[in-house]
Design a protein around this nucleic acid. Structure first.
Lengths: 208, 208
DNA sequence: CAGGTAAGATTACACTGTAAACATTTTAAC
DNA sequence: GTTAAAATGTTTACAGTGTAATCTTACCTG
């Protein structure tokens, strides 16, 4: 008759810390940033509105944890995209870009929070910073392989990476922010645009 | 002894509509989006907190007006950049990109609001939409000239424009959101990165 | 100059984030 | 095991915030 006690979950709630992150993530994906208020998160997790403050200093700290979870999801997507892609640099670049943009379209509010450096001071949340860097490192390594195995121009791979990242991040965010209404509801057109971006990028980074 | 009556300014305040936009813009540039609350805007304009509702349906409407003003400022910058640049396509592209990124760095919170399609439904604010399109048209025309006068690849100029826009918008937003901390405080490094992005873009869009 | 209308001021209310005080459960020391 | 301490959760309280409703004032038109 006792509530089923799950192993390794301490204290009253079980694992309120993660439950709050999960609830916040759900609210964010459903109703956007406006729908994410602390009291609703607490209600959804089945605790009073004061309880979250035992696990997060303030709302920003919860947002940072949610953003970190977002980066973990993004990294997972990028890794799958890399594994599934054929072993050519161009295909891996394209596959990664597709995963990045599709993730952004799928979870626009989360994407927005993840990259809202204005509201979330990254240095205040070191684990968020390092997790986001994991995503960047994936691209750096990809570019490095491209420099070694293909005819990419030489130079600091970080610079090449920033160009590539800017290209694909720009496309992703323009879609997230609904700046491209003419193709917003046309997955095929979006795919064509991703392809065109990556083709242009590849051409531009290739040695002549 | 009467307050100085300014010509063409109706009713009590003078021009509260524009005063509110100006005050909001100032708060946004100083303290970021978090600092922009309606009551503070009203206080700064010297009216009660109920007054703004005679000019804007709600906070979003004011934000839309501020964003529109932002696009007007951006368009002005882009036009100056185009006029000042030498008459070569590459230089004009570079100059435009520099103006875009510098504007973003200078007024990050405004830039954020301008492109926050999630919070501001563009179709609800037609003048905002058309003003933002003016900025885009500048780039489309630039690309078209590049296709006519230089060796850019053929095809729908809109597609080329979206690639170029994504590239430079991505760079601008990564800087705005403080995702590139290593170069955030180094204008020379930023300038180098802009140049590298545009060089890569130009290479990629050029006919081989 | 009288009524109507536009602009602004007051008041009121629901909803947030968050701090403080209180209560309860778990953990740990003896 | 009993008990003190720490961790967790609840309640209460308060200051902002957006916004609706009502009241007041200034302007404008006949």
């Amino acid at each position: 008759m006792l509530p089923p006690k799950i192993a390794n979950k301490p204290y009253h709630h079980g694992d309120l810390h993660n439950a709050l992150i999960a609830a916040g993530l759900a609210l964010l994906n459903e109703g956007g940033a406006a729908a994410l208020d602390l009291r609703k998160v607490a209600r959804q997790a089945g605790v009073s509105h004061g309880a979250p403050y035992r696990h997060f200093a303030d709302k920003q700290a919860l947002l940072a944890a949610i953003a970190e979870e977002g980066f973990e999801q993004l990294v997972a997507r990028l890794q799958i995209a890399l594994e599934e892609a054929p072993n050519s640099f161009f295909d891996q670049l394209l596959s990664t870009a597709q995963a990045y943009v599709r993730f952004a379209i799928e979870k626009p509010a989360l994407m927005r929070e993840m990259f809202s450096g204005v509201t979330i001071e990254r240095m205040t949340y070191p684990t968020l910073y390092s997790t986001s860097k994991t995503a960047l490192n994936l691209i750096i390594e990809l570019i490095q392989r491209g420099q070694e195995q293909e005819n990419l121009i030489p130079g600091d791979p970080i610079n090449l990476t920033l160009v590539a990242w800017s290209q694909i991040h720009g496309l992703a965010m323009l879609l997230v922010e609904k700046q491209l209404p003419h193709i917003a509801d046309d997955p095929a057109a979006i795919d064509q645009l991703i392809r065109f971006c990556i083709q242009t990028l590849y051409n531009g980074l290739a040695q002549k």
